[in-house]
Simulated assay, not measured.
Amino acid sequence: MFSAINDYLACQGFKYIKPEKAGPEKETMEDLKSLGQAARKEMQELSKEVNQAFAGFEMTRVSNWANQAQIARPHFWCYFMEEGSHPDEVGIAIRLYGEKDHFGISVEVSFVERKKSAETLAKQSKILDLPIAEPLYYFVQVDGLSHRQEGSEDNRLRLQKALADGEVRKVLLKYDIPVQADTDRKLLVEEILAGIELVMPYYEATK
Score class of each variant (00 low, 15 high):
Glu150His: 04
Ile94Met: 07
Ile105Ser: 01
Ile92Tyr: 09
Ala39Thr: 07
Phe139Ile: 07
Ala10Phe: 04
Gln141Ala: 12
Val109Trp: 12
Ala10His: 03
Leu193Val: 07
Tyr175Cys: 04
Glu113Asn: 11
Glu49Asp: 14
Gln141Pro: 00
Tyr138Gln: 03
Ile192Gln: 03
Pro131Val: 11
Ala93Leu: 10
Arg148Gln: 06
Ala205Gln: 03
Ser85Gly: 08
Met43Asn: 05
Thr206Tyr: 05
Asp184Tyr: 08
Asn67Pro: 02
Gly56Asp: 09
Thr120Glu: 05
Leu173Trp: 11
Glu150Leu: 07
Asn64Tyr: 08
Asp129Glu: 15
Ala164Ile: 09
Lys41Gln: 14
Ala162Gly: 02
Glu197Asn: 11
Lys170Ser: 15
Asn51Pro: 00
Thr60Ala: 08
Leu35Thr: 08
Lys207Ser: 09
Pro24Lys: 10
Pro24Tyr: 11
Glu83Asp: 11
Leu173Ala: 08
Val112Ala: 09
Val171Pro: 01
Gly56Asn: 10
Ala53Phe: 15
Glu167Trp: 14
Val171Thr: 01
Gly98Trp: 00
Leu32Phe: 10
Ala133Lys: 15
Lys174Asn: 13
Tyr138Thr: 04
Lys18Arg: 12
Glu20Gln: 06
Lys116Gln: 14
Glu204Ile: 14
Ile71Pro: 00
Ala118Glu: 09
Leu188Pro: 01
His147Gly: 08
Glu58Asn: 14
Ser3Pro: 00
Tyr137Trp: 12
Gly56His: 11
Lys123Ser: 10
Gly144Thr: 13
Ile5Thr: 13
Lys170Trp: 08
Leu188Lys: 02
Cys78Val: 13
Ala133Ile: 07
Val109Ile: 15
Ala205Thr: 02
Glu30Leu: 11
Glu42Tyr: 07
Leu198His: 07
Glu108Met: 14
Thr183Tyr: 01
Leu46Thr: 08
Phe76Ile: 02
